[in-house]
Design a protein around this nucleic acid. Structure first.
Length: 305
DNA sequence: GACCAGGGGTGCC
DNA sequence: GGCACCCATGGT
């Protein structure tokens, strides 16, 4: 979709696609109060990003769900040449390319998805633009409850990430591949993730630092199977993590983390079952969602909130 | 104090 | 290739 935007008084105004609800998306962003990568307050979201070695503190709000407005805080208004990249960043983060109408049309035939859509109308699959951050988040979150996962991420980011202060608040950048690649599991002991996870994360950071693993190369692959094969070669990345990453970062439409406990619980809740569905049952269900599995998963997760 | 958590590796057969 | 077992800590 064409990206229509303009710059007015040092503020970017980005034209939104037809189906979009900013408040619903902000609700998603506040799913855990311990989130450390951005701050949601007074109907806007503020975060620190880095583009071409420039740090920008951006604040995003919406205008009638017709435009997103992006302003730059702390004197970080960039050179004009960087503005299109800010638009790209925001566009990707909010997944504004996705054809929500097509997903909704498919979902209306499915009672389970229909209830999720009614609850979350206008939600887009809020992503994680950086491959390293997505992989670290997925790995550290394996097999622990989400609340604890957010605590681990916060400790990790606050210990090893850089930040910018503005009006008494600290805005964090995720630690760089170089930084993480230089760590040892001992360095990460205070973060209190398992030693194994520390090893996985350091290894992934080294692959990314050395350009052996890039988002661009993964995006070149022609199928979800190929992405899964490539990612699961890496220690600590199994089918769940590969699908999670392809969903949140690579934006593949058909990612489906079948082993996901949250997804199982959501389906159990949505179908009023007295037990969690098995992976086989989930796969059977997902046949109806072919081509839309990523959004189906994302919307179903929201049933639990 | 048990049971579970947005899994994955390893070793055994 | 399927299965049991381990990781290891915190939330409920």
């Amino acid at each position: 979709m064409a990206r229509t935007w303009q710059c007015v008084d040092e503020r970017l105004q980005i034209k939104l696609p037809e189906i979009f609800d900013f408040e619903v998306n902000l609700d998603y962003l506040t799913r855990d109060t311990n989130e450390c990568m951005y701050e949601v307050r007074d109907n806007h979201v503020t975060r620190l990003i880095e583009l071409d070695n420039h740090r920008l503190l951006i604040q995003i709000s919406a205008e009638d769900n017709k435009y997103l407005n992006v302003s730059f805080l702390a004197g970080t208004y960039p050179d004009e040449t960087l503005l299109p990249k800010v638009v790209d960043y925001v566009w990707e983060w909010f997944d504004l390319d996705y054809d929500l109408a097509a997903f909704y049309e498919m979902s209306r035939k499915d009672p389970l998805l229909s209830q999720a859509i009614e609850k979350e109308y206008g939600l887009r699959l809020m992503g994680i633009n950086e491959l390293l951050e997505t992989l670290c988040w997925a790995i550290l979150g394996q097999q622990i409850n989400l609340t604890f996962a957010y605590t681990l991420k916060r400790r990790f980011v606050e210990t090893f990430g850089e930040s910018m202060e503005y009006e008494g608040k600290k805005y964090m950048l995720f630690p760089s591949a170089e930084t993480i690649a230089g760590l040892t599991p001992e360095d990460m002991a205070d973060v209190k993730m398992t030693r194994r996870k520390s090893e996985y994360i350091i290894n992934v950071a080294r692959l990314i630092r050395d350009n052996q693993l890039t988002k661009e190369a993964l995006l070149e692959l022609d199928s979800l199977d190929a992405i899964e094969r490539e990612l699961t070669k890496i220690r600590g990345i199994g089918p769940w993590t590969a699908n999670y990453v392809s969903m949140r970062c690579l934006r593949h439409p058909s990612s489906f983390p079948v082993a996901d406990v949250g997804l199982m619980n959501a389906v159990k809740f949505g179908l009023d079952m007295d037990r969690k569905p098995t992976q086989e049952e989930l796969l059977e269900l997902s046949k109806k969602w072919s081509g839309f599995e990523s959004y189906a998963t994302f919307y179903l997760w929201r049933l639990l909130y």
